[in-house]
Design a protein around this nucleic acid. Structure first.
Lengths: 248, 248
DNA sequence: TTAAATTTGTTCAAATATAATCATAAATAA
DNA sequence: TTATTTATGATTATATTTGAACAAATTTAA
């Protein structure tokens, strides 16, 4: 297979997924990682993609989500697995909340063709769902440049005006003992508000966050209805005992 | 078999398969690889195919998909002239509205280093001002994918919560007789709301729009305080007589 | 912070493709 | 016919691509 051929395929994959890892690409194209790296380097030089550590991302994305660049290429497969599960729960005509976490962001690719309404405070999500089947409602308020998301009192009030079917949320930490925890007060505020105004609240949470606590404990586990994760560990049983539905 | 004959067949195969190898072609045409290579070289020189290492590709596949083209908007110089004037009116610590017109968008470049707060319903404005000195407040509500802007009842209510120093607005048409006119009801709504909640309202308007009417008349000239434009025509006098300050 | 793990860049060798050269065969013209 | 041109194929040399091994840089975890 020639470089040009691979280039086409790589472009397609990157367009589709938004963000990919070198390993993944090497497998898909049945070639070595070094070849993929060389290809990506050439393509990046042409401005066709944005090179990240361990992979690549869509140019259009790279210019926007600064905050996600730092988190790129960690646990992508796990996150995609989780998001695929979560997407299956979404029905046509659903109205859903999506918050500004990096896991939740990856849900976008799986819902592009659904006829739903998404209410979100995340600019990357907005950008990703622009000009798709999805109808978007953007939460208004103060923009946090680093997180590329809207936070604050106005944002919370905006959320409270809606009652939606499902909320898809991420957190920085979750444990039986301390419930949900976050690294930022602002994010916690949004998460809480979204959960309170959704019929079902889905927590998208890769296994690395299970049992971890961050500095700010902000809500009990009970605000969550469904825990979507990637590993079927014994740990999950205790969550199940607390009344959470587990998807994995 | 002659070159002309082979050329037809090769073209057909390439069209059909998108990408092919020299070996493959040599077998199909029952000739040597070197002959195929010579043929492909000639065809590539004529721009009929794209030569790759080891084979050839359809021209259309090889060409770089121009996914992101910068809109070369009309009257850039005029708009920049207008925006430079408008930017001079903005002081540190001002809070301003910016709407989603293409003229107003070009104001961004001139205010990046000002310490102000911008309240806007335009995604392009947000992206342009992201990670600059400017603090951003995004208006929430329904997102219009085509205009990349937020409109609707919620957006208007969001605007009404603020009282700002200056509003910088664009319109599609302006005339003495009919006042301000727009091509879309949604935009008119936002423009009106912003003007009503700003101490001073600046209309950024290149000369091509002066004296023009669009289908929707939505407001009298009196909601404007300052008209920023690029030409010093006699026409402007009548606007001045109506109490508008003219900047040009 | 340091240490471990991962990713990337570099160099080199093998495989493959291309270019160059020459010889042969076929077609064309005198 | 013969001489000349043209197209094709074979052979060899050159260039490109690829993958492996290892050092350097970066990221992650502790």
């Amino acid at each position: 297979m020639s470089y040009q051929n691979r280039k086409q395929k790589l472009l397609k994959i990157v367009e589709q997924h938004g963000e990919v890892e070198v390993k993944e690409l090497a497998q898909k194209l049945e070639t070595s990682e070094i070849t993929i790296r060389r290809d990506l380097a050439l393509m990046a030089a042409d401005g066709l993609i944005f090179r990240t550590h361990g992979g690549a991302m869509k140019m259009s994305l790279a210019s926007i989500p600064v905050s996600f660049q730092q988190k790129t290429s960690t646990n992508i497969e796990q996150k995609d697995y989780i998001c695929r599960l979560a997407a299956q729960e979404i029905l046509d005509n659903d109205i859903i909340f999506m918050d500004c976490g990096s896991t939740v962001f990856r849900l976008c690719q799986f819902i592009k063709n659904k006829r739903i309404k998404v209410i979100t405070n995340s600019l990357p999500v907005v950008y990703e769902l622009l000009n798709t089947e999805v109808s978007i409602n953007l939460i208004g308020g103060e923009l946090d440049g680093n997180r590329q998301a809207i936070h604050g009192k106005i944002a919370v009030e905006h959320i409270e005006r809606y009652k939606v079917d499902k909320a898809f949320l991420g957190v920085d930490g979750i444990s039986i003992e301390n419930g949900l925890s976050a690294a930022s007060e602002k994010e916690a505020e949004i998460t809480t508000a979204m959960a309170a105004n959704a019929q079902s609240t889905y927590l998208l949470c890769d296994s690395s966050k299970l049992g971890k606590d961050k500095y700010l404990k902000f809500a009990p586990l009970t605000i969550i209805d469904v825990l979507v994760t990637n590993q079927a560990t014994d740990l999950l049983k205790s969550y199940q005992d607390l009344g959470l539905r587990i998807l994995n």
